[in-house]
Design a protein around this nucleic acid. Structure first.
Lengths: 143, 143
DNA sequence: AGTGAAAGGGTAGGTAA
DNA sequence: TTACCTACCCTTTCACT
């Protein structure tokens, strides 16, 4: 993990369709060498996967919300139960004023209400507090 | 935006290195037709960009935190001021128990403290509450 | 770990059905 | 929209440095 690896990752984060020829030129290496470095970064799991960023609103998910979930015991399969809710994009165990923090995307406030109902049915959940996103100022990949 | 478009997006979210030949076969179209559909999805902004998912911990950002920011007036360039902090991955204007919610990634708690200091220096900020992530149960792309 | 070249496959663009 | 064709670029591999 030297400076060149970091540059390659940054370039790919910005646009993963770049060819190895372009990448190599950008970091001062040959196409083959750039390819080999990226291959190793994938192999080591530093680069998890190549994906596309989708405009959620265009797919009918216009509402984003964070849900603070209070619970008693967070052992076992609570994670699996939350993962089973398709609208849950992220779920984090947290230190602070709740047990778990969810990031949820739905088509509207009606669907959000339905998601909250399903969260409440997960074993151990004693309460939820919901934060609705009004506007997103920043949403980017860190370098 | 029909069912085929949705399938193509889902396939690309899963692995954007798939060739158009493979994509076409998966949705029952020719390579050319699949290519044309994806091109239009990009053009319309449904697909924002192609990128790589990076293991942040492997890049020395092992601590994730959410910061609830209280403030007086959130007009003007507060967004720009927050975007200027490189550790800020997301910033949302929210309805609920604060004005703005930040997602922050740092190398350690020491750096987190430093970020909080910089957030406090943004004009209009009157207070912050920090939620540290202990474990991430779910982190995925929604279909 | 990187270079350079060769071979094969995929992509992109055009045209016709 | 599909099918076909073509030119070209890129990926991938390998021997050599």
């Amino acid at each position: 993990m030297d400076e060149i690896d970091r540059m390659l990752i940054s370039l790919l984060q910005d646009d993963a369709t770049r060819s190895y020829a372009v990448l190599g030129k950008a970091v001062g290496l040959s196409s083959g060498a750039a390819h080999e470095r990226v291959r190793k970064l994938r192999e080591r799991g530093v680069i998890r996967r190549t994906t596309v960023e989708v405009d959620q609103a265009a797919l009918g998910r216009g509402v984003t919300a964070y849900v603070l979930v209070d619970g008693e015991s967070w052992m076992g399969d609570s994670g699996a139960a939350l993962a089973a809710i398709p609208e849950v994009e992220e779920a984090h165990v947290i230190a602070g004023p709740a047990s778990v923090l969810l990031k949820v995307r739905t088509g509207g406030t009606r669907d959000l209400q339905d998601v909250l109902r399903r969260v409440f049915q997960v074993e151990g959940v004693t309460g939820t507090r919901t934060i609705v996103v009004l506007d997103t100022l920043v949403d980017r990949a860190l370098k």
